[in-house]
Design a protein around this nucleic acid. Sequence first.
DNA 1: CTATTTTATCGACATTCCGTCAATAAAACA
DNA 2: TGTTTTATTGACGGAATGTCGATAAAATAG
Lengths: 182, 182
Amino acid sequence: MFTMKKEDPRSIRSRRMLKEAVFTLLAENEDVSQLTVQKITNRAELNRATFYLHYEDINDLLRQIVHEIFDELSKKVDPLLKIPRSNEHEQLVAFLDYIYEYRKLFAVLVEHKGFKTSLTNLLKKTIQARRDARGEDLPPNLVSLDIIGASLLGIIMWWVKDGIQFSSEYVAEQIARLYKKE
Amino acid sequence: MFTMKKEDPRSIRSRRMLKEAVFTLLAENEDVSQLTVQKITNRAELNRATFYLHYEDINDLLRQIVHEIFDELSKKVDPLLKIPRSNEHEQLVAFLDYIYEYRKLFAVLVEHKGFKTSLTNLLKKTIQARRDARGEDLPPNLVSLDIIGASLLGIIMWWVKDGIQFSSEYVAEQIARLYKKE
DNA sequence: CTATTTTATCGACATTCCGTCAATAAAACA
DNA sequence: TGTTTTATTGACGGAATGTCGATAAAATAG
């Protein structure tokens, strides 16, 4: 049996308040570089020193927020990877729909290095899974995973930041056209 | 005849020193977010207040540096666009070679919004020029300029930040494979 | 060439943010 | 309930910011 060491409810509440403060501030500010510990703790109605008990700095807090979002995103993506490739378009749209749902947050976090790395890794993992599923009918002149991951990241960054008027369906179709050899 | 209002040589020298200070600091720091006006003016051996006479803030200074680099880059790219498409590969390699030359600076500046916009516009302009040159044999299922620009930006960002061990030749070939329908 | 005007640079000030104390308050536990 | 543990807090020193008036250097007029 695991002896789960109980966490002080004050800590849990403080961390929740700090994260919520970041969410509301980002929704107003639109710019991650304008965040200060001062603003965050004011919004969370906590002392500034309390922040440093839970996080090393603002980047550390953002890192953890990113981690949690990716846990959730991975949980939604992983089952999709098990579906056969006939549904590739639906898979892609479902994935993009999730991003669209969090587009404002993504538009901010996509500037964060850890976020870019996590998202790229998820994309590469997904592409690799598809290639594995396809088996032997791989095209001979293969584009490397790095390149595909980087280009997909670029498209998603553009979409959430400057092209959010386009639907998931449109972006999915454009991506399909780009990568499909015909 | 234009009456060029002469600039105070002190101003010219100060701006030059401040820009050079940024270059040397970025070459050491590797991180644009760690720049401070303090550090820049210390390195430039100028008073901190002098900085604010010439630039609004650090972003303003970076904006102007970006602008100058793109003036230079555009001058190199524009002639290439006039060459017929048989030399597309050489054009792409020449373009990437220029980026490779400034890769350390690019790796830093590519985080800057103005830089991304400028680079994307240049890429889109280049792609459009090629499409125009090709005339009527355009593929029916065209990928939008926005999408191609965004994916190329993503690839270049990855290259200068995480994949600089790869040669211009390699990246050019991968890009060609990605966008060429066969 | 000298005197005057213009303006670039500088030292200093108030403000804000940062990171870290010891003191206090709240939760966990015996 | 009384004791131990730990989360929260106010306060302090240091650093960066943006903006003064004072000074020094360049441009200009006589």
